[in-house]
Computed example of a mutant assay.
Amino acid sequence: METTSSSLNVSSTSTDWRGVALSNFALSPFVLEDNLFASVEGFIQGIKFPEGDSLRAVAFCSSGQDAKNLASQADRSAVYWAGGRIAYGCADHHRLIGRAIRARIEQSIGLQKVLLSTDGLDLVHNTGPEPESPATSLPAVVFCGILTELREELKAR
């Protein structure tokens, strides 16, 4: 589904620039707990590697498909953050990714304005004809829920 009069596809493949800008693939540096990341996608893929793994650092400095491609080398049983191990795909894992998405947008006035410009639109995440993988790090419904919640918070400020 692409942008319609009532929805916006938040994806690197979106035909609406706002969807591309809000995508996790976008090169959009942010800081989370004093750590610098090139993109949310780099964060998502990097936390799949244990702390100290060289591929973790590569992912954190990556964006787009380069970051996504690293996932094939990761063990998807857990993610690693702040010295801890979190079960892959659980609510805590999704909350951690949500914190990264929130940090990215809160640190950019431009992205805040982009997100606010989507008011009245349903945010969707559709990357093509293939169904979403059940092994995805961040299900579309969770991703869009995070953005929608953040948009409502920004509107209330």
Score class of each variant (00 low, 15 high):
residue 35 N to I: 15
residue 6 S to V: 14
residue 79 V to K: 06
residue 35 N to G: 05
residue 66 D to V: 11
residue 97 I to N: 01
residue 112 Q to S: 09
residue 111 L to Y: 08
residue 20 V to Y: 06
residue 143 F to A: 05
residue 100 A to E: 01
residue 123 L to V: 06
residue 63 S to D: 10
residue 80 Y to P: 10
residue 100 A to H: 03
residue 133 S to I: 06
residue 63 S to M: 11
residue 24 N to I: 12
residue 39 S to E: 04
residue 105 I to F: 02
residue 154 L to A: 07
residue 47 I to Y: 04
residue 58 V to Y: 00
residue 129 P to M: 14
residue 70 L to G: 09
residue 125 H to Y: 12
residue 11 S to D: 09
residue 14 S to F: 05
residue 113 K to G: 03
residue 73 Q to E: 13
residue 3 T to A: 11
residue 34 D to I: 01
residue 116 L to W: 15
residue 133 S to W: 04
residue 144 C to Y: 06
residue 40 V to Q: 08
residue 48 K to I: 05
residue 128 G to K: 13
residue 21 A to T: 08
residue 80 Y to L: 14
residue 95 R to I: 14
residue 48 K to Y: 02
residue 78 A to Y: 11
residue 157 R to F: 11
residue 2 E to T: 10
residue 56 R to K: 15
residue 126 N to R: 12
residue 10 V to T: 07
residue 66 D to I: 12
residue 51 E to I: 15
residue 96 L to G: 07
residue 25 F to C: 02
residue 85 R to P: 00
residue 57 A to V: 11
residue 22 L to D: 00
residue 77 S to Q: 12
residue 77 S to P: 00
residue 22 L to W: 01
residue 62 S to R: 09
residue 13 T to C: 10
residue 76 R to Q: 12
residue 51 E to D: 12
residue 151 R to P: 00
residue 67 A to L: 11
residue 64 G to E: 07
residue 11 S to R: 09
residue 97 I to R: 05
residue 124 V to Y: 01
residue 151 R to F: 07
residue 50 P to E: 04
residue 105 I to L: 04
residue 120 G to C: 10
residue 141 V to R: 14
residue 152 E to N: 03
residue 115 L to I: 02
residue 52 G to F: 09
residue 24 N to G: 06
residue 131 P to W: 07
residue 16 D to H: 08
residue 58 V to D: 00
residue 67 A to N: 07
residue 156 A to F: 13
residue 155 K to V: 11
residue 126 N to M: 12
residue 30 F to P: 01
residue 103 A to Y: 04
residue 143 F to G: 01
residue 150 L to S: 00
residue 36 L to I: 15
residue 74 A to V: 04
residue 108 S to I: 05
residue 3 T to L: 10
residue 62 S to L: 08
residue 52 G to E: 06
residue 20 V to G: 04
residue 96 L to P: 02
residue 92 D to W: 04
residue 51 E to P: 06
residue 120 G to E: 05
residue 116 L to M: 15
residue 92 D to R: 13
residue 19 G to D: 00
residue 146 I to C: 06
residue 66 D to Q: 11
residue 45 Q to F: 02
residue 72 S to A: 15
residue 5 S to E: 13
residue 42 G to D: 04
residue 17 W to N: 08
residue 13 T to D: 03
residue 82 A to R: 11
residue 84 G to S: 09
residue 122 D to I: 06
residue 149 E to P: 03
residue 3 T to G: 03
residue 27 L to W: 13
residue 18 R to P: 02
residue 89 G to S: 01
residue 131 P to M: 12
residue 101 I to L: 13
residue 105 I to S: 00
residue 10 V to L: 12
residue 127 T to C: 07
residue 111 L to K: 08
residue 56 R to P: 08
residue 109 I to D: 09
residue 56 R to I: 15
residue 63 S to T: 12
residue 66 D to L: 08
residue 148 T to K: 09
residue 113 K to Y: 09
residue 116 L to T: 13
residue 33 E to T: 02
residue 3 T to W: 05
residue 86 I to V: 12
residue 106 E to L: 14
residue 155 K to D: 02
residue 23 S to T: 08
residue 10 V to W: 07
residue 129 P to K: 14
residue 105 I to C: 00
residue 32 L to V: 05
residue 124 V to M: 05
residue 148 T to S: 14
residue 140 A to R: 03
residue 119 D to S: 14
residue 6 S to N: 10
residue 130 E to N: 06
residue 135 A to F: 03
residue 89 G to W: 04
residue 152 E to V: 02
residue 41 E to N: 04
residue 67 A to T: 08
